[in-house]
Amino acid sequence: MRGFRAGLVGAELVRLGSHAVYRLGAPVIVRIARDPDSLEEMERAVRVARWLESEDFPATRVLAEVPQPSVVGGRVVTFWESAQEREEYATVEELADLLRRLHWLEEPESLGLPYFDPVAKLWKGLESLDAVAEDDRKFLEERAGKLAKEYDRLDFVLPFGLIHGDANIGNVLRHRDGHAIMIDLDDFTLAPREWDLVLTAIFYDRFGWHTRSEYEAFVYRYGFDLMNWPGYSVLADLRELMMVVWLGQQVSASTKSAEEFARRINSLRAGNDRRDWKPF
């Protein structure tokens, strides 16, 4: 434990979300899970990383010389190769290319991937909202209940199979050699492929974080426009709500998160435009 802490001295904090992500002096990324019960999930992420490497798929690589994952001070820790010395995002076209290639892969049973149940994940998140106002919690629960019924009636059209689970431009980085790679492999699961397209769609359609030309390029490269699918609005509403609930779990740890949570839930209540939402 003392040696691990010493290794973090002078480390650069890259991200703070479900994981605290640090870049060490050497080209190494350390990810420390916030959830102390995430050992099984991270064991699966390591298996996924090693399998993707065996498939020569462009993704973040886990360090081979370090036991993975490790448990340090009750926290689950993993070590990864750093893409480059600074964080540089790839393009939406490259995201589309990676997703199309990923969705063609046939995963081995040895990965032990679970089936994705977005409603169950949403309710689990709602149970963790211990620092939000009771009326906010009740509003979110009522909205979740309504969307759960609508989700059960969806008729998906893309093949069911392997997905990234959190596919968006923030999880595609530029490698130091120039090519794009996928990162954050924790949410790999088996699900309708529409789930891997919905974030890019709402980043354009609802939040204005992508331009029209960027979204059209994404659609062209992937080969399917989710916004033309009849179930899009339900999937978008559900994914949007999951984003709000996730942020609600951070309100006690960050004033910035609390302010953004208040902005988002107020816009949901009033049915306002989402274009003042800030990326997290």
Rank of each mutant, 00 (worst) to 15 (best):
V219G: 07
L185V: 08
V198E: 02
L199R: 14
H210K: 11
E260W: 01
R174K: 13
V157R: 15
E88Q: 13
E127A: 14
A253D: 13
P36R: 06
V157H: 08
S128P: 00
L247E: 12
W123G: 03
A258N: 06
G125F: 06
P159D: 06
R44Y: 02
G74A: 08
E43A: 06
F57S: 08
E134H: 11
T189P: 00
P230Y: 08
F79K: 03
V28S: 02
D136P: 08
N171P: 04
L105H: 10
H103M: 09
L185A: 01
L185T: 04
K124G: 15
E259C: 04
L105W: 11
E216R: 13
M1T: 12
T200G: 05
M227F: 00
P230A: 02
G178P: 00
K256M: 11
L158G: 01
L16I: 03
S257R: 12
S213N: 10
K278L: 15
L113M: 10
L52Y: 08
W246T: 12
I163Q: 02
V76P: 06
G223R: 09
W246C: 03
A33H: 00
V77T: 04
G178A: 01
V21Y: 02
V244W: 03
H19Y: 06
E194M: 07
P279Q: 12
W104H: 14
W104A: 14
